[in-house]
Design a binder for these strands. Structure first.
Lengths: 327, 327
DNA sequence: CGTCACTATGACAACGTTGTCTCCCCCTGG
DNA sequence: CCAGGGGGAGACAACGTTGTCATAGTGACG
């Protein structure tokens, strides 16, 4: 900036005035300054500006499990859209479902003085966030609640959705329904399992633990589980896949299987309608999830001091075929 | 920091020393300082630190067309992985295939003093980057070259891949092959069209312009084009989809069509193997694209001054079924 | 006992901006 | 002719750090 000032023959304060479109600069002076800026390729240093003004940095942080997973990338996109409308940039990070990594990312973001943080939490302990939140960095939890603190949260109706899935299958005559879920440490997985049990109860189906598998999904793990569940005289006639990754693995396994049980997935996914049979899913609006969370965050950024809010977004069952076959 | 210093009864310089793990601090003093840091919830301001040290900011910028598109989110993930290994955070932005927006994002990132920028360029004019690059911000172009400047670029073999696709279809007896591409303003689309023509030539097929459509893909647009191309006595017997979005739209259209032409897509996508018939594609390693670009960027960040490099990654045809049907 | 080396600490400036205050000049109105 | 006012511009400090240099204290050694 001082280089520009020297070249234009003015003080650096005048350059600052030009850069910030402040009034009370003579047009001729402004022009000289702009020419100098152009010539030197000057670009104001936002870091220094933010430091001096003590204002917001114009960035927010987003932490998800894996930015490469279509579910989270859609979320990312929705968040970005809102952030852009508020003139903010988005710093993203993948926690890889690792709470230490999540914590690292959060603290790093705080050190960068982001204006707020959106996080799909990996762990169950979020006490480390208390000082940051008290220091004025708003945090909104997405898709899963915070483990041990009260904070803004946006969820989907995991419980209701799974109940609906069970009811749908029961309505088509299924009594032996298998449930394949992610690790029970994950809130959504636990909640969906709870919905599964509740759904069984409501439909007069006795809950059979041997038809349930809860673990981190891997192709082989899911493959083995599916084969086991569909084998023998007491085989399941229907399967509920607890999330989009699991659904894909299940489908891949079933593609080579003789018996094709009915199937309902939780989370919609691209091409579900083009498979054979088309896949029935419990769908929810991922963009809405991102929008709601980002809107809530920016309300906080702009000073909203109301008590922490908990938003639960609705889900709906999309019947496409795979869930409507008889046992 | 001065609050911490006051509470611990030391100077702020000593606090700085503790925070930075500098030697020559008495253990007792360090402990007092750490206690004060803990008590006050102090977190050092990275912005001020970077300003003072004049060092790198520890961030890089990534600009893609749409972070929500699985293709780009996989790229994002690969870039993030390398960035993390170099201790950097990633700022992401979607250009929405709009060169003004791209430019805005780039300049914003530069104002934030990112250590480098990775960009999937939207437009053809990148002269605006010259001052930034001269000022020391390395830029690597991904998937498409810069319009009018020389710069590091990582591409995939669009030409070779499309030639391979045509040859594959020709080998299965097809002589009337349609090509559905994205807007010809996009480098990859133009290049794949060039590959299509070249492929026709090499296989002794006369290039028929009426079998080619090049435009921004929309469900309806693709639907109409597919119906037109498959209609009449001179109908195409095979279709090449120019990218993953187009492939999906084509598949959705064909799902309701009476005639099912052979089909090959450019870009692999999830579940392609589970469709009926499974979709033959020209696949390339998106992660490798991101890795290569990020590695190249960090080499530059660390001072590599060699002439701009151009990396072309190989593609390979994955025959799954949809491309192996006779006319 | 004076000197030296070393440890532990602090004062101060500087990074690139911008807010505040001040100054100068010219114009207007009485 | 003078007071008052407003437009245009600069000096200076401060934002939160850290690099440089200075200083005080401690022990060892000749």
């Amino acid at each position: 900036m001082s280089d520009v000032a020297r070249l234009a023959g003015v003080s650096i304060k005048t350059v600052s005035r030009v850069v910030n479109d402040e009034p009370a600069v003579h047009p001729d002076t402004a022009e000289r300054v702009m020419a100098a800026i152009e010539q030197l390729g000057f670009r104001r240093n936002l870091g220094a500006r933010n430091l001096r003004r003590g204002s917001t940095t114009g960035t927010i942080g987003l932490i998800v499990e894996d930015v490469g997973n279509p579910f989270y990338s859609e979320l990312n996109r929705a968040v970005e859209r809102i952030a852009t409308s508020f003139g903010r940039q988005v710093l993203t990070g993948s926690s890889e479902e690792n709470s230490d990594r999540e914590r690292e990312l959060v603290l790093e973001f705080c050190a960068r003085r982001v204006d707020g943080i959106l996080v799909v939490p990996a762990g169950l302990q979020h006490g480390y966030l208390v000082p940051e939140m008290r220091a004025g960095t708003p945090v909104v939890f997405i898709d899963r609640p915070a483990g041990d603190i009260v904070a803004d949260t946006v969820l989907v109706d995991n419980l209701g959705g799974t109940i609906e899935a069970v009811t749908h299958l029961a309505k088509h005559g299924h009594r032996r329904i298998a449930f394949l879920g992610d690790s029970p440490d994950i809130f959504t997985a636990a909640e969906r399992l709870r919905g599964f049990r509740e759904g069984c109860v409501r439909n007069g189906i006795s809950y059979d633990e041997s038809l349930v598998t809860m673990r981190t999904p891997t192709p082989d793990g899911i493959g083995d589980a599916v084969k086991r569940l569909l084998d023998g005289p007491d085989a399941a006639t229907a399967v509920i896949a607890g999330n989009n990754r699991i659904a894909v693995h299940v489908l891949r396994t079933l593609a080579h299987a003789e018996r094709r049980p009915a199937m309902v997935g939780f989370d919609d996914f691209e091409l579900a309608d083009l498979l054979n049979p088309p896949v029935t899913v419990v769908a929810h609006d991922v963009s809405a999830l991102g929008h709601a969370a980002a809107e809530l965050l920016f309300a906080r950024v702009q000073g909203d001091q109301s008590p922490p809010r908990k938003v639960v977004l609705p889900v709906h069952l999309v019947a496409r075929g795979s869930g409507e076959v008889a046992p």
